[in-house]
């Protein structure tokens, strides 16, 4: 059952910010998860601030340097289907296409996708867990087959649920944020908060702050980008293991590799170990083997998710084999 709440739909950004400064105000963008969060009482909101009345927060346009600026209210469907996105960053289009189900993609927004609440069943269920202000992360010793193998620090083992965030991190994207004090720009890589820093927060956004645009710099020369996602069922599910690749290619040599994993950690997980193996290398079978191993070398699996180590390794091998082959093996 939903709790009682009020609903406002301001038409000025400043008004929205003002509303959001009040205690227990929450943003309503696509709303695909907001109502669920309220119903399950994992979010204590009594004022829903709709962004639906704001002009100019949707749509995709090219920037002066040849990158893209995507409005935060652009639907996931539009991101996945937009020609500019598909031409410049196929990986982002793939990531968007892997989100949830068609209905949810039609309604959900890119900004909302970056700010999702975790899907951990303890967090979502009737468990007073650490992230909700309780004293314990139930996943560390509980049923953790879907949980993190990196970055949990035995504090909180959620995996970040977004499929677009890993790609945006790999593409060096940033978000424009409007807020009560100053407007700022944050690299997507710095947007999410690891549990060791603050177990109650998913993003660095402060009260009253709204993501307005997502900016992606111009594609690197000969950019290869991709996103791959494995899930327990083939639709309407979050990643068991996923990977965003963004490679600047020089012939068959990877001059610069960005690798960001999903389903791996409480935040989109940059695999610097794998990037180091790949950057400057040609993708021989041996490099692929070493790179995939390197990606999981530092994994800290829990009792129920050891399989993720092998799954990431296998999936990354498969993904690396596709590079330079038009996405086919």
């Amino acid at each position: 059952m939903l709790p009682k709440f009020s609903y406002v739909r301001p038409d000025k950004l400043a008004q929205a910010v003002k509303h959001l400064e009040t205690d227990k105000a929450v943003i309503h963008a696509g709303g695909t998860d907001l109502l669920g969060c309220l119903r399950e009482r994992i979010m204590d909101g009594d004022l829903l601030v709709s962004l639906g009345g704001l002009k100019g927060l949707a749509g995709i346009k090219e920037t002066a340097d040849g990158g893209l600026s995507i409005g935060a209210l652009t639907t996931i469907t539009e991101v996945s289907e937009n020609r500019l996105v598909r031409d410049k960053y196929p990986g982002l289009a793939q990531g968007a296409a892997e989100v949830a189900s068609p209905q949810l993609r039609n309604q959900g927004t890119l900004g909302g996708n970056l700010c999702q609440k975790p899907r951990c069943w303890y967090f979502r269920g009737e468990f007073h867990c650490l992230r909700k202000g309780g004293g314990l992360c139930f996943a560390i010793k509980g049923e953790n087959q879907f949980h993190a193998i990196f970055g949990h620090d035995k504090i909180c083992a959620i995996t970040h649920p977004s499929d677009t965030a890993p790609v945006l991190v790999a593409l060096n994207a940033s978000v424009d944020v409007v807020g009560p004090a100053v407007n700022r720009s944050i690299a997507v890589e710095d947007l999410h908060v690891p549990p060791a820093e603050d177990v109650r927060a998913e993003t660095v956004l402060k009260r009253g702050e709204i993501i307005t645009r997502i900016t992606i710099p111009a594609p690197a020369p000969n950019l290869y980008s991709s996103y791959r996602k494995i899930r327990a069922r083939r639709s309407w599910d979050f990643a068991l293991a996923g990977a965003a690749l963004a490679f600047a290619m020089d012939g068959d040599r990877v001059s610069r590799a960005n690798v960001v994993l999903s389903g791996a950690a409480p935040v989109p997980w940059r695999s610097t170990a794998m990037e180091e193996v790949l950057s400057g290398s040609t993708l021989t079978a041996e490099t692929i083997f070493r790179a995939a191993r390197a990606a999981v070398a530092e994994a800290r699996p829990l009792a129920g998710n050891q399989y993720k180590v092998e799954m990431f390794r296998g999936m990354l091998e498969e993904e690396l084999r596709k590079v330079g082959k038009g996405g086919e093996v």
């Binding site: 303890y122 269920g125 009737e126 468990f127 139930f138 010793k141 509980g142």
Partner: peptide, 12 residues
């Protein structure tokens, strides 16, 4: 899936 080792409650 039941939370077998901790609470016995239904996870999913």
């Amino acid at each position: 899936q039941l939370d077998e080792n901790q609470t016995g409650k239904l996870c999913n």
